[in-house]
Design a protein around this nucleic acid. Sequence first.
RNA 1: GGGCGCGUAGCUCAGCUGGCAGAGCAGCGGACUCUUAAUCCGCCGGUCGAAGGUUCGAACCCUUCCGCGCUCACCA
Length: 595
Amino acid sequence: MPERAQPAQEQGAGDEGAARAALRARAAGARGRGRTPGRREEEDRLRQPDPLVHHPPLAARQGPPHQAGDRQRPGRARRRPRRADPRLPAAGGRRLVANEAEILAARRKRAERLRDEAGAELFPARVPRPLDSLREVSERWAESDAEALEEARAEARVAGRIAAVRSFGKAAFVTLQADGARLQVWVKRDRLGSEVYRAFRLYEAGDFIWARGGLLRTRSGELTVEAEEIGFLAKSYRPLPEKFHGLVDVETRYRQRYLDLLVNPEARDWAVKRSRMVSALRALLDERGFLEVETPVLQPLYGGAHATPFVTRHKTYDQQLYLRISFELYLKRLIIGGLDRVYEIGRDFRNEGVSRKHNPEFSMLEVYQAYADYTDMMELTENLVAGAAERVGGGTRVERDGRGIDLAPPWPRRPMAELIRERTGVDIEQVTELEPLRDEVRRAGVAGVDPAASPTWAALVDAIFSQAVEPELIDPVFVLDYPAALSPLAKRDESRPHLVERFEAFIGGMEIANAFSELNDPDDQRARFEEQAAAARSGDAEAHPVDEDFLRALEHGMPPTGGMGMGVGRLAMILTGAAHLREVKLFPHLRPRDA
RNA sequence: GGGCGCGUAGCUCAGCUGGCAGAGCAGCGGACUCUUAAUCCGCCGGUCGAAGGUUCGAACCCUUCCGCGCUCACCA
């Protein structure tokens, strides 16, 4: 029962702020200075003003006499300090400062005028039909010049959110945004009539509207709908993020991802790519005859990985349940039951720390194929990754940290011992005891590895590999021939019993997949479970318990089976070039807002 | 948990060696029928994260705390 690749535990590709820096550079243009913005809303929420104590009038301040008189600006100097008005309603869980309240009040007031003076419905139930897709309109006429548009008498009726308004008194240009596409609408009073135009002036950025009219090119060549009809679709009571710099604050981007998606093209692009990637994985597996299944998230006993589970409780059964840490044991039951090719794409939950490398819930693909072994899983893995890349991005070449990576199969197969020897000079095949290996590591001076910190030979091998080898595995590679001691859950290599039939796939310095020839000897499996149980008794909180029900299933016989787990988030990082797992996660886990 | 960094207007950020708290955007009022960060005129907007300390004087120096980020450890 191999524990699977854990996308929550990324071996991050170093550069902390690459994504953020890119965002900032894009948002701020050439003038952008690198600086992490702060978050003021929090403080606003916590403030309890006492102006007399904290903000005395300037006249009452102690100040040097020679500075006092001549340079004060009367207007500023006499301004009374503003502060949060405790009477204002809390919104979104925090107290509003007066200025933000003013902005919101202005939008409310404008909405009321739109409803009462212009007679518009703020949230109408119906949208005029037929409606042209804004994206399709802009794509269809993208290459047509002014004459071509006129000749075709091109027309469109589009709807979207107002992203920007450039107003000229009796005319205005409105940038509509929908589904990630943008299209300009030219709103002119002489075309619409003064009554409609007066109502239009109460529209504002963030609102949803529709417009119908002929397509033309402006002097600057932009495809534009010259509105002959216009209407209101939905009010936005809150403003969009600042239009030039956009939304930069990392925490706000995650907490209010909808704003991030609206204004940061990367956010949208990565979300779309991840979705397409998952669709591609499904399609590729389906084409190979695999059956997608769903197994319990709520499990009476957890297993299949080495991790701390979340615990929950079923009320009416008064039953303790665990959120799954892997799908493994259930999928193998299905193999036993004759579903010879199954996979599941879903969420695992591991009650571990949250950081750039950890998210308590993360997506996993697990695949099991009867009458197969780990070599079949290699072929499957490289074809899934390359196939997904082709279907998502059009090719098997991706960029990472400024260099290209080719995902096209076949990927090299490299024994772990060989890689370690190449990088460090340490030969784990020759040095098979803990103490000699420690000496060897000290002699070789492996950076980042403290030989004394690893309690066993296997742990030290793992430390060497993680530190010295893994970060350098940029191009796709299968690492195989894992020491049996390092992989107690996989089938032994028959001709070399100190090794197991296991591989891990690495790309961009990250573990992408982990696979085994699955252990199907129930007696051996029982022995492994009991080792785990013993470890648990001696204090290993993550060792998992004996699963009698699973053992009973195994005793009914499981065919030789290859199994593979792949971190969906990790693969998404590779295909999008994202530096952080949470960039490809729509709603990453965050610390709660109110302590 | 350890280390490093950051926190100034609703947003993005300046603020020099301790001496007047600023800009742009957003908001409000006005002008403007080819703009696209529209432009122009005027106005509004601040507990400089919090508390304490040093100082004649603190956004700036010191201490503690809070929040966020990075990193190490942990997490095979």
